[in-house]
Computed example of a mutant assay.
Amino acid sequence: MRDLRNDGVPLHGLRVVLLAGGAGGSTFAVGLRDVVVAGGGSLTVVCNTADDLWVHGLRIQPDVDSMLYGLAGVKDPVRGWGRAGDSDRVSQELREWNLGWDWFALGDLDLGTHIARSSWLREGAGVGGVVHRLQERWELGARLLPMTESEVDTLVMLDEGTIHFQEWWTRHRAQREPRAFANPGIESARPAPGVLEALAEADVVVLAPSNPVVSIGPIVGVPGIADAIRGGTAPVVGVSPIIGGSPVRGMADVCLRVVGAECSAAGVAQLYGARDGGGLLDAWLLGEEDAAEAPRIEGLGIRPVVTPLWMSDVALTRALAADALAAALTLG
């Protein structure tokens, strides 16, 4: 692990807030947690909850659970989501009853999480309270917060109708061309308890290498969150989810096309915008493959930092996290 203290960068007691969603976000969070905790700091992760949906009467939170399982060390390393070593006997039995979706199988251990969550929600615990209870089971080394208490799902607008994001991604593998994405109710949503406070107290804010449209977009779309980031004193650094002109994982290229953004490191930086110009970023990490885009990013008013982005193993992920913190702390 790179030691920022050897570079003259103060790390002890650092308060870091990460905005994240998806498999890439949870992988990066583990490396960031390791670096921050090793320096005696604290990490708060604000999770995307716009992927959430109801299935079998249960509230499913894919991004929250990926973050929970990843930080707990129980995430399936092959699929990148769900519990390691899980089985699917319950889902198979439900299919025998012609119940649910055969394209959205839930593991048995995973179902335990969803049952607990839904029970607590029905008891009135609230989304934030439920996330707090879930993370008490494991020693995560980080605090998880949902972006909002409100049910703000992501819908995909197609020529033939509107479907939930999970159906578009999981069932159709993003092969049906969207006209737009929507988050009904987000205009009246409020940041979950603790989110604005964490941003106000942060020493560093990091945007994970998550999908900028359907993972990070809904988080900063909750009224008050983007303003808190722009108006805060903490430097803001983002990590590109695009390497060599292609998304590392998922369908960010399709999502970017829908919102009129270029699928490139510079294109995503432009989508987020420079904080000095009313956007979100002070610095932007881009891969060595995209070094030629650095002058363009600098022209946007964002400091470009060229560094290896592939999170192929734990050591590389920690090194990337350390680079993100160094970039933030050496701004100015």
Rank of each mutant, 00 (worst) to 15 (best):
V248C: 02
V237F: 06
A226E: 08
P247E: 10
G231P: 10
I243K: 00
I225S: 11
I229F: 07
I229D: 06
A228I: 04
I242T: 09
V237P: 01
A252V: 12
P235L: 13
P241T: 06
V236Q: 00
R230C: 09
G238L: 01
G245V: 11
P223T: 13
P241A: 11
A226D: 04
V236T: 09
G231L: 08
D253N: 08
S240A: 12
V237A: 15
M251V: 11
A252R: 06
G244A: 11
G224C: 13
T233G: 14
G232T: 01
V248P: 00
R230N: 09
A226C: 04
G224T: 12
I242M: 04
G232H: 04
M251K: 03
I243F: 00
A226R: 15
P223E: 07
P223D: 04
A234R: 06
V237W: 03
A226Y: 03
G232R: 00
A228F: 10
V248Q: 02
S246G: 03
A226K: 14
M251R: 01
A234P: 01
P235T: 09
S246Q: 13
D253E: 15
G250H: 06
S240F: 03
A226T: 04
P235N: 13
G250Q: 07
P247A: 11
G244N: 11
P247C: 09
A226I: 06
I242N: 03
R249A: 12
G231C: 09
P235D: 12
P241Q: 07
D227T: 15
P247L: 07
V239R: 02
V248E: 04
I225D: 07
G224E: 09
G224V: 14
G231D: 14
S240E: 03
V239D: 01
T233F: 01
V237G: 08
P241M: 05
I225R: 15
S246T: 12
G238Q: 04
I225C: 09
G245K: 08
V248G: 05
G244C: 11
P235F: 11
I229K: 08
V239M: 02
T233H: 08
R230F: 06
S240Y: 02
A252C: 12
A226N: 03
P223F: 14
V236M: 01
A234Y: 04
G244V: 11
A252P: 04
I242S: 03
I225N: 11
S240V: 05
G245T: 13
G231H: 13
D253T: 02
G238C: 05
A228P: 12
I225F: 13
G245F: 05
I243C: 01
P241K: 01
V236H: 00
G245A: 07
G245Y: 05
G244F: 09
P223W: 14
P235Q: 13
P241C: 07
G232Q: 05
A228H: 13
A252T: 15
M251F: 12
A234K: 06
D227H: 14
G231N: 14
V236K: 00
G245P: 14
D227R: 15
V237M: 08
S240W: 02
M251P: 13
G238P: 00
R249F: 05
I243M: 06
G224P: 10
D253F: 01
V239K: 02
P247D: 10
D227V: 13
P247M: 10
G224R: 15
M251T: 09
P247I: 10
D227P: 06
G232F: 02
I242G: 03
P247F: 02
G238E: 07
G224S: 10
A234G: 14
I243A: 11
